[in-house]
Design a protein around this nucleic acid. Structure first.
Lengths: 338, 338
DNA sequence: CTGAAAGCGCTTACAG
DNA sequence: CTGAAAGCGCTTACAG
């Protein structure tokens, strides 16, 4: 079934059918109705490739996981942002296409992939480090929104949680619980997100008038559980432990918890722990994990609307920062103050 | 940049460039080399829409989550299958497109969506219940692979874990631990997967010569934690508890654990629990959860290869069943036998 | 081994 | 309000 057959069946021209499908006003109600009925009956849906070829618009949004090849769909934070993004983008009339990295990651040529598929825009989800190829895309004329990734191109924007505020809420919570000796577990120096959280943490410690002790700051190789475990072991080896530790991700926190438990240490009595992300597992761990929740749904919805506006030239990009929330569970004990 | 410009730059015809791009043999090495160099330099990538329009092949695979609108990317089991599927499909030269349900779920017209995008094939991931629209797709000439979903069309196939074997391994484990009073927590009667696991469980109980006690069989509204919690509360209310419970998903199991703990009951001392799926959280819960691991990576890889063969007419569909593995953790106690 | 031309299914000025 | 025709960027018989 194609537009020509529909036109024949309705006894009108192809142009007229096209106009009706695209809601042009200069068609009589009568022909419109007749054609619509035929479209309805036949279940006709215009070929996206032909339409794309003619208009240079595909109604497709490219989804790019920058950096970490093996994470993608299993990353608990991004997947939730993506879920909300997809839903909102669907409402706005777009579908999502996922670029397979395998063949292209070496050349890393995301830009030509975008041209290849004629995507109307991209959402770029940050991995560990920024690939140069992402910069090319950012600088191009293709609308891009970064999630937890600062995109600065003229047709780009980004959304992220306020990492400074995240850190500040953590320090405040520790402070109110009476903890003065604070440690940190982060990812590698490559990770923008980890660095921001660390910088915010340092800043907050200082602004609360607490002593900053760098020996309690350790780093893993990524944001995963085994890195947190290794990092805490590193701390344990020094023989000196902080009273409270902020980990830059929940999985890092859970790894740290495991290392502490293995040494017979109690949480929160011996060491209080706060994670970051509020992944589902936090509720089921022992102790349940106090953490910072990012508003993933809102991040996804914002990303979708920003991208939509960028595509339709109703925005020049910019950025939105979403406020995080402290989720108090068991891993820090109860508040001492009201 | 397009094929015409490449042709001009190389001083050859468009046809020749096309042949080179598509690895036709009847081109001289000399021209081939010259053209390839120009393609390299310019970073030219042919328009997918033009190609699709001309060939009726898009190198795109449609991904469909059938049924559950809100689950999608946050479903811990499917997301891992999908990750492996995507990777393998990428190697085979395909990209993935995700249909937005929002506009179409009412009409549920997946088939016309497939035509719209000219997808070469589809992977359909089962939700709670089977939508009629999936049947239409299954019956169509578009190659489809179901994941945990029995597709029977002539151009269809499916992969799933052996649910009978899952149940049998659970019963065996309970049996060897000395448990004779076995309960079950499932999802709704709509769920094919839950039903299969239950049927397998019943069969295994009987073949082990144990007494089947239907009063210990309860069902939630879905596969999620809160359903498991509610289901266990239902059991608790009856005043009679089994010694061991198999839940059709890990989240159901975790909900059940929560309900038991709230009543001061100990796991595994008072009730042993086995879940299903081996989601990440199992390792972090208290107690850690004994479960059945489905080989998600293998399911994804198999789905990809089966779909590829179906697309290339090298197969008539069929199905693969993947063997599950029992993962022993703390929620059943230690084995009493060797 | 190379190229001219028709065709894929749309949209969009443009003419009427 | 309606339609003929060119064009989007490819591929593919076909002729040479």
């Amino acid at each position: 079934m194609n537009i020509k057959k529909i036109a024949e069946m309705a006894g009108v021209s192809v142009s007229t059918v096209s106009k009706i499908m695209n809601n042009y006003s200069d068609v009589s109600e009568k022909t419109k109705k007749r054609v619509m009925e035929i479209i309805e009956q036949t279940g006709y849906s215009p070929s996206n490739s032909a339409k794309t070829l003619a208009t240079k618009k595909s109604s497709l949004i490219g989804v790019i996981f920058a950096g970490e090849l093996n994470v993608e769909f299993t990353h608990p934070f991004f997947v939730e942002v993506l879920n909300s993004f997809k839903k909102q983008m669907g409402v706005l009339g777009y579908d999502l296409i996922f670029f397979s990295n395998e063949k292209f990651i070496s050349s890393g040529d995301y830009y030509s992939r975008c041209l290849h598929f004629n995507v109307d825009g991209c959402v770029i989800i940050s991995g560990q480090k920024m690939e140069p190829a992402i910069r090319d895309l950012d600088r191009s004329s293709i609308p891009c929104i970064g999630v937890d990734l600062e995109l600065t191109g003229t047709k780009s924007g980004f959304v992220m949680s306020d990492n400074f505020q995240i850190a500040s809420k953590v320090v405040e919570h520790f402070y109110l619980l009476g903890h003065r000796e604070l440690g940190f577990i982060g990812s590698t120096a490559d990770s923008e997100i980890s660095n921001q959280r660390e910088a915010g943490y340092v800043k907050a410690i200082e602004s609360f008038g607490l002593t900053l002790n760098r020996k309690w700051f350790v780093h893993g190789d990524d944001f995963f559980e085994s890195s947190g475990y290794a990092a805490m072991q590193q701390l344990l080896k020094t023989g000196s432990l902080p009273k409270a530790v902020f980990a830059a991700s929940d999985l890092l926190a859970l790894g740290a918890v495991r290392a502490l438990k293995e040494q017979g240490l109690r949480i929160p009595e011996d060491v209080a722990i706060i994670g970051c992300d509020d992944i589902e597992a936090c509720k089921y761990t022992s102790p349940t994990l106090t953490t910072i929740r990012q508003n993933k749904e809102r991040l996804g919805v914002l990303a979708a609307h920003m991208l939509f506006d960028l595509i339709n030239n109703q925005s020049d990009g910019g950025s939105f920062v979403v406020e995080p929330a402290l989720i108090v569970r068991e891993s820090c004990g109860s508040r001492l103050t009201g």
